[in-house]
């Protein structure tokens, strides 16, 4: 009986130890390169869910730095939501499909135009370019907030249109329309108009 007791108690301790042990460890996986869109479709938002706002002129979002905040006129049918974290706002075109605009601001030059262009190209699986190639890719939109440099990239069914704006206060703003080829193309005219309405409030 004593032997049985010992065996039983030992088994109990082993079970408790097994339950207490941690399975978490670093794992390595080889996967095919991710689709260009950073977030998988349907990916649940992290942080506080944004509240939808009606279309029209939107009030200025919270001040990101000591400088002025960016304002814009929202195209008809678009909605905007103030996003958490690094996103200043998220804009949604009315078109069906996977396409949305992220508005992000950073203080300073944020790495410069070439570094950002190559970062965006990498997101779409495109090779980097040299500084000499920038001018041919850059389009310009004039707005009250200043000159917006616009770049467009596409690869493997995904498309990205990015507006880059440097403000007198030293902030850099990125307005990035990203998604599948068709909905981005559909939303692009309105997005270009939106870039023309940018102002500093």
């Amino acid at each position: 009986m004593q032997k049985t007791n010992s065996l039983f108690l030992t088994s109990g301790l082993a079970l408790a130890a097994a339950l207490g042990c941690n399975r978490d460890q670093v794992q390595s996986t080889r996967v095919e390169k991710a689709a260009p869109a950073a977030m998988p479709p349907g990916h649940p938002p992290m942080g506080t869910p944004p509240a939808a706002m009606p279309a029209g002129a939107v009030p200025p979002p919270p001040q990101p730095t000591g400088g002025q905040a960016l304002q814009w006129l929202l195209p008809k049918g678009w909605t905007t939501a103030q996003a958490g974290g690094m996103r200043f706002a998220t804009l949604k075109p009315p078109a069906q499909g996977n396409a949305e605009v992220s508005v992000v601001t950073l203080s300073g030059p944020a790495g410069g135009e070439l570094a950002n262009v190559n970062r965006w190209r990498a997101q779409l699986g495109l090779p980097p370019i040299e500084a000499a190639g920038l001018a041919s890719l850059r389009k310009v939109v004039q707005s009250k907030a200043g000159t917006v440099a616009v770049f467009e990239f596409a690869n493997s069914g995904s498309r990205m249109v990015v507006g880059l704006l440097s403000t007198p206060a030293g902030n850099t703003w990125f307005l990035k329309l990203l998604g599948e080829d068709v909905p981005v193309n559909h939303a692009k005219p309105d997005f270009m108009k939106l870039l023309g309405t940018l102002s500093l409030g």
Binding site: D24, S28, V31
Partner: peptide, 26 residues
């Protein structure tokens, strides 16, 4: 990014980050 078609992804659970000061990535 090891090659043009595939990525090698090393995943470190948050629970490991929470209790570690240094993590060697195998």
């Amino acid at each position: 990014s090891k090659d043009p078609s595939h990525d090698q992804i090393y995943s470190i659970p948050a629970s490991l980050l929470r209790r570690s000061e240094s993590i060697a990535v195998p």
